[in-house]
Amino acid sequence: MSALAITFCIVCQFLLVIGQLFLKHAMNGVDLTPRPWRRVIWNFAAGVGALTLWFFLWVGLMQQSALSRIFPFEGLNPALLVLGAWIFLKERLPPAAWVGVLMICVGIGLVTAS
């Protein structure tokens, strides 16, 4: 797998996480009173936009590599997303869960080295 393909795989994961954070932010606003529609719509559109970029880059990667080779890169997502949710959504994880994050990173290292 080339360095460029690995870079695009990582960019894909960041786009996916950014999209998910925007979507969650939008859905958190749906049940608030009064409904902040402008904020909900803007966050939803930003989330869909990031996921659209991710989608086409991901399909492009699929044309270059075997699915079982590129898909394990998505193992980065839980680590990036938990970090993002901690920073931007104020969600907190128990300390033991961070061990899980480390295991995910090691697992990805094994997958990409094989």
Binding site: S68, R69, P78, G100, L102, I104, G107, L110, V111
Partner: peptide, 14 residues
């Protein structure tokens, strides 16, 4: 690669 995928999954479970 199977081992790496398994390790990723254990991490997710944690």
């Amino acid at each position: 690669r199977w081992g790496g995928i398994a390790l990723v999954l254990v991490g997710i479970l944690l």
